[in-house]
């Protein structure tokens, strides 16, 4: 079942001589359990595609549907609700709330959705456990490493019933070993049925995906299936 559907999406910034087509007639489908990597040179529209998919960017034309919800015409608060319930975002710089501890950060989307607090905490623990960092629940952010923070960020992205995880260069601030670990976690998510869309510069990391979509100048120029063996990727080839 399709979790993310972009049909002829175009995003233009500016006008006239300063017009920039960040995305140009992009069509993309991501199903449950799909792991899609988006690659391309700087300015090709990768992050813009992710932002549109997450409801963080507006002003585009075309059609975008996330988990069966069309995004056209949705107001800010409706988009925020969509992100709370259906879309998880993973940033390069983790973007965790420094005044909250680990479990509070993970439970944050559910608490913002006014979920019963005990259930929110329980869900958060479950998410942390999936990422193998349940023991960090009560720690402050300054007490854990960069890799652990990124795993916390991923846990926040998947807490609850999230069907779609959007990861914008999640390994950019990590060393290679930690980065591989993060990619492995994302792979496991996809294997569990979560749709993952990854933006990355590194071909090694793109190799963890099921499919790689290449963008150039806002257009999809290529889309290819990948059949890499995770073991090979972890071996550091």
């Amino acid at each position: 079942m399709s979790v993310l559907q972009l049909d002829a999406v175009t995003r233009i910034y500016g006008a006239g001589a300063s017009e920039v087509r960040a995305l140009d007639d992009v069509t993309l489908t991501v199903d449950e359990g799909d792991f899609v990597a988006i690659m391309g040179p700087s300015g090709s529209g990768k992050s813009t595609l992710l932002a549109i998919a997450g409801g963080l960017d507006q002003g585009w034309t075309g059609s975008v549907t996330v988990a069966g919800h069309p995004l056209q015409g949705l107001k800010r608060d409706a988009l925020a609700r969509l992100r709370r319930r259906h879309v998880g975002y993973v940033f390069q710089d983790y973007n965790l709330v420094p005044t909250l501890n680990v479990i509070e950060n993970v439970a944050l989307p559910l608490e913002l959705d006014r979920t019963d607090p005990s259930w929110a905490r329980q869900s958060a623990r479950a998410a942390l456990k999936r990422l193998g960092i349940a023991d960090l629940a009560g720690r402050r952010l300054d007490q854990i490493s960069g890799g652990q923070r990124q795993r916390v960020a991923i846990a926040r992205a998947i807490v609850g019933d999230r069907k779609l995880v959007l990861a914008d260069e999640p390994t950019g601030a990590l060393d290679s070993a930690t980065g591989d670990d993060v990619m492995q976690r994302l792979r496991l998510l996809a294997d569990d049925g979560v749709a993952v869309v990854l933006v990355t510069h590194e071909a090694r990391h793109a190799g963890w995906a099921d499919r790689i979509v290449f963008l150039r100048d806002g257009r999809v120029v290529d889309s290819t299936r990948v059949a890499n063996d995770p073991a090979v990727l972890l071996a550091g080839a």
Partner: peptide, 16 residues
């Protein structure tokens, strides 16, 4: 500002 943007990205409504 960045933290507020983050909260918005995570799904915090404007009123929150």
């Amino acid at each position: 500002r960045r933290q507020l943007g983050l909260l918005g990205a995570v799904g915090a409504p404007t009123r929150t």
